[in-house]
Design a protein around this nucleic acid. Sequence first.
DNA 1: GTGAATTAGGTATGTACCGTACGTAACTCC
DNA 2: GGAGTTACGTACGGTACATACCTAATTCAC
Lengths: 410, 410
Amino acid sequence: MPVAAGTRYMREVNTAAVLTLLRTVEHTSAPELARQAGLSRQAVSRSLSDLGEAGLVEFLAPVRSGVGSGRPAQRVRFRAEAGHVLGASVSPERIRVGLADLSGRVVAAHDTPPPVSEEIGSEVTARALTDAAHRVLAQARIEVGGVWHASIGVPGIVDPATGRVRFAPSMPGVTGDVLIRALGEATGREVYLDNDVKLATVGELWHGGGHRSMVLIHWGERVGAGVVVAGALHRGAANDAGDLGYLDLFTDAPAPDRGEDDAFLGAFEAWTGTGAFAALGREAARERGDHTLLTRLARPETRTATLVAAVTDGAPAALAALEEITRRFAQGVGAVRALLDPGVVVVGGPMARCGPTLLTALRAHLRRQRLDPPPLELSRLGEDAVVQGALRHSLDQVEHTRLRPPSTTG
Amino acid sequence: MPVAAGTRYMREVNTAAVLTLLRTVEHTSAPELARQAGLSRQAVSRSLSDLGEAGLVEFLAPVRSGVGSGRPAQRVRFRAEAGHVLGASVSPERIRVGLADLSGRVVAAHDTPPPVSEEIGSEVTARALTDAAHRVLAQARIEVGGVWHASIGVPGIVDPATGRVRFAPSMPGVTGDVLIRALGEATGREVYLDNDVKLATVGELWHGGGHRSMVLIHWGERVGAGVVVAGALHRGAANDAGDLGYLDLFTDAPAPDRGEDDAFLGAFEAWTGTGAFAALGREAARERGDHTLLTRLARPETRTATLVAAVTDGAPAALAALEEITRRFAQGVGAVRALLDPGVVVVGGPMARCGPTLLTALRAHLRRQRLDPPPLELSRLGEDAVVQGALRHSLDQVEHTRLRPPSTTG
DNA sequence: GTGAATTAGGTATGTACCGTACGTAACTCC
DNA sequence: GGAGTTACGTACGGTACATACCTAATTCAC
């Protein structure tokens, strides 16, 4: 149903165009905007005065020390502080909340471990989240009403239409709509909730090199991917695209090693996740008589950190484990390459802490495959990717609802 | 760089909206269009008279036998015959050309085997293509100038920006720009050329159920896929997305059977292609003492057709081969499911001629995987998919260049 | 058969937007 | 201090769409 409209619509289009230009620079002037937008200065001025009344634009005093001659232009500035968005990441390890203004600049952040009694009831986790949210608002001296949108990322299967968590094996307490309800009541706004890897992908895409297609692979205990095609996240028919952990490469191969606490692990993540990495590390340490490493790897909760540190220290047993785990992982990257031919593959999650050594090893294995390997990068945001992606999602929502004209054609 | 424009732009938007509405129905009236577009009747009338002068709209006599009372409206009709597009498929087996009007209706088609002396020089194939093109034009009594755009699909690796064929192992004669140059000179228009599987995917998407995401798997001697995400074909960074044939599932598995003439086959297509199917069929026929089938399978050029016929006839040896080949193929479908979670997976190519039996067998294997299997369908267009996709691509080009307003925001 | 009701087409008027033009303001350079 | 340059503000003209009103054509009821 393409729908067209009258002159009022044209005005909205032009105002939105002016605003978009304005948002890309620190400050500028009406004549400059007119040149960039292809509009007359008057049309720009009209739009600017509308935007000024809406609180989105501030008029600044003219700058006197212009190099060229002529009357100095009145400067205008996008008022990024006119509104704010909230982004949160809730995982078994951390509750992270960030507050950003309309330009995406983070003005306050909070990072706290989740309450230990999480399994008692989801209300505890939800309260910890809203507490953190109130804390960042206080920190930035922003009223609750100044939050225009909020998004949350959690590890689990999410229905993105409703924001309900269908299944979250690592934190059963957040199943259902506890989190969006709690944060919704706290902010008075509708809250978006999505899978953490998907939001992390949005975050990496935002701060990455502007790739049109990209795959972020979260490499940890579990393995999951976010698929970006044509500059946008691809969710899949059941919001389950990028479920790399369940890739089954091993038709005729023997059953892969499995970790200990992994009833729900898929074939690929059981074979390549941090559980398998620790098993490989123990084996290599035993073979090489590295008793120090072997002892340290006995503690399950720190085994991945131990092994990653051993890799960066150059311990031979750890490097041997890395060699094997990257050989396996390269098979998954190869499948991604064959199907999607992405512009870049970004590796994130706990394994990414191994650093460039990881990519070097991966690249060596990929070169043995028959297809040209995709460019590899390490996650730029690390732990922050989920919050950044949540902020980006909220900013997108705000831009589409409050900073844009209605779409021309449906 | 968002650019806005004046009232003239608004007019173009509205005219395009009217035209889009008009193209969805047989014929309609100005008041009806006004209601649908949300415009006044006058605005619609102005747009219609512009479109009439451009030859895109025809005014019909009012229909007298209206059911309700009132003055009968003048009817208007989209003149689909105002322009035509040409779509072609060039393969070692056939040269197919179709001519469609602006509504996508095929008004003439031609289907011929390619010249046998193909390897002597590409000019022979190119001339066969232009001959076929002139034939469909004569058949439909259309002047060459009435062709607004043309597209060609070929089996091979193509640079979609230039339309040059980089590598076509099955028909080396078409390497380079011979085909687009020949058809370009014949039609006087720029010609688009792309990989045949990618265009077939566009065709299936067009005539399919309007899925937002879809994967078409061409299953023949080679295996390739077309990936549709968000309603559009995904090409990949090097135009190599969907290269399912090079999927390597078999890290620790023994090297798969390979056909005889397959220096360039990837691991997956060597294991699941029609070559492997024939090998499985021979083995099964030998085991079961089906000498008739064994004899027939000795002829390489008809072995796939023989085996497909045996499958539809219910021959036990053929069904056993089908069972094994679908078991293997299901691994690839599983990888597609895990990474992309498509709304539907369409199976095309020579293997699709096995019919619903193929899908039934595939589904049984997919149910054993841990992820919910995607819906499976057989190709609706079969051999015609490439030509249909080429026509659709040309229609898209025409719509974006001649039937649409300039985009609002860049 | 004739008139009321209904709906479409055509023309005039009003409103809104953009662009051009012109006068005024402010600043720099000589 | 004047010339040159650039920005701002207002006025005017062009174009598009919406509304209003009149005429035309057809159906239905009596």
